[in-house]
Amino acid sequence: MQMIKTLSAAVVVIGIAVSAGNVHAAAKGPKAPAQDWSFQGIFGTYDQAALQRGFQVYKNVCAACHGLSRIAFRNFEDLGYNEDEIKALASEYEVTDGPNEEGEMFERTAIPADRWPSPFPNKQAAQFANGGAYPLDLSLITKARAGGGDSAIRVSMLQPTGFPIGADYVYGLLTGYLDEAPEGFEIADTQYYNKYYPGHAISMAPPLYEDSVEYADGTPATVSQMAHDVATFLTWTAEPELNERKNLGMKVILFLIIFTAMLYALKRKIWADLH
């Protein structure tokens, strides 16, 4: 009887949890298919090589228009760079500082403590340079799209077959351009047809072409490879604590399982004389 009650409680928990996930309502259009990610699941961690390659893609392709303003140069330690490499990386960029004693803002070389400088001084300049479309800051994009950031639970009441996470969406978007819009779909000359972008008409031209980046580690730079790597990198920018979080989670849950078992044994012992 006790077992049934505990089990039904567990079922209710999972039931409501799964139904709570129904906020992941399907966006208009097909959902991006799930990809394999090294950081997925309870034992997932970031693949540092993929992070470095993804950073290369961001730096050489995306950074021209898309900011990454929540990431500081010092954060790149996570990618495996040492202090000197980070200083060298930062010194390639200039940031605005000031006002100085004359009351003027000035440019200076970036230091590791600085954040990634935006390609445009403000949102209006960004829109102006891109035909009215605003290239989003990408720091949190994988938590702000599709099913959100990395999640060990991938089903919900609305989508019992599973929902895509932000990284799947980014990969799908980057690889989901069609040369021609399907029959009957009206699309402006300044826009492109994308399978996974909500509404399908996206102002960004396909950013990735075969070999548009030459990887430092020699991996062939196919569109699929670059999309996968940059999606991994962008998951890291949104969730830099992932490795630590899952590591600590394993220790906490193992501790709790052992401790709860001890509590249960103690409970049975104390209640024994009543039965």
């Binding site: 949890a17 709570a20 996930g21 906020v23 309870i42 938590k143 959100g148 950031g149 999640s151 060990a152 639970i153 979080r245 899952k246 600590l248 989670g249 394993m250 906490v252 849950i253």
Partner: peptide, 9 residues
């Protein structure tokens, strides 16, 4: 620890 944004939007 493993699905911190699952319940959110």
């Amino acid at each position: 620890f493993y699905a911190p944004n699952y319940l959110g939007h």
